[in-house]
Design a protein around this nucleic acid. Sequence first.
DNA 1: GTGACTGCAAAGTCTTTGCACGCGG
DNA 2: CCGCGTGCAAAGACTTTGCAGTCAC
Lengths: 146, 146
Amino acid sequence: MKLSASARFAEALQQRGKRMTRQRQLIVQQVFSHHDHFDADELLDHLRPLLAQRKLSRPTVYRTLAELVEAGLLRKMSLGGRSIYEHEYGYPQHDHLYCQQCNRLVEFHSEELNRVCAAVAAEHQFELSGHRMLVVGICASCRQPK
Amino acid sequence: MKLSASARFAEALQQRGKRMTRQRQLIVQQVFSHHDHFDADELLDHLRPLLAQRKLSRPTVYRTLAELVEAGLLRKMSLGGRSIYEHEYGYPQHDHLYCQQCNRLVEFHSEELNRVCAAVAAEHQFELSGHRMLVVGICASCRQPK
DNA sequence: GTGACTGCAAAGTCTTTGCACGCGG
DNA sequence: CCGCGTGCAAAGACTTTGCAGTCAC
């Protein structure tokens, strides 16, 4: 069942009458080269050599990120005014702990949280489609004396 | 114990060697005239007559919002790229349901959610300082056939 | 071939800042 | 009167868009 991200993207594009281009290939490869959270700027940084070589451009990166979100390969969230992306394809649902000192995100999963969501939605007659949970605090290493 | 928001703001300003001005007064009055979520743009809309009369200016509104957040009277959160504000002073802690169709926010409170937060933080050795929870779905009225 | 995609530059959107004047305490 | 606060205009950060040429299919 597990296609590579780039193959899955090609498939999703085709379904919508869109095309897999060299630029999109390069971006998808970079995005899925390792599992991490990132914003557009960080991605642009990683792609800097390719930008310098004129293999792709800034607007194309933004446009492709949007395509990846639409295709369900990436999830977009906003944190402190900027857009953060993370892998959605082939990665289990989870939420985040956020260290307000070092800005790191740590993933966690909680079944109990899902139950709370369902209960709250039911109570307010909402049709639940998802949730966004951020637990904010200070991580272990930031709390330690230097 | 309950000062008016504007009195509480004046007090907070004083403690920091800052001043209560006519502009800040006007903004605080508008902000606390009713309990609701709003973004800078909506607030600016409500203040439009005052802006037109040159009683205050756009940058001052932004600066005052930041003061109110620092003073602990407002809470700032970001949703879909824009900053949303809500009353923090004299208002119980709560989270939100978000209707993705009509964009309305509905408040809820869950003790169980707080317990989950504490548990997750403890498990990851985080010092908990708060959380942000958004339950996303479609509200009752949006689900109804028109 | 033909229509989606790209690069460029330019425009948006929302928010912040520099500076000279004005006013609160 | 001192110096914080304000208004103005302009700059910023980040992202999007219009358009003419290019490339995938």
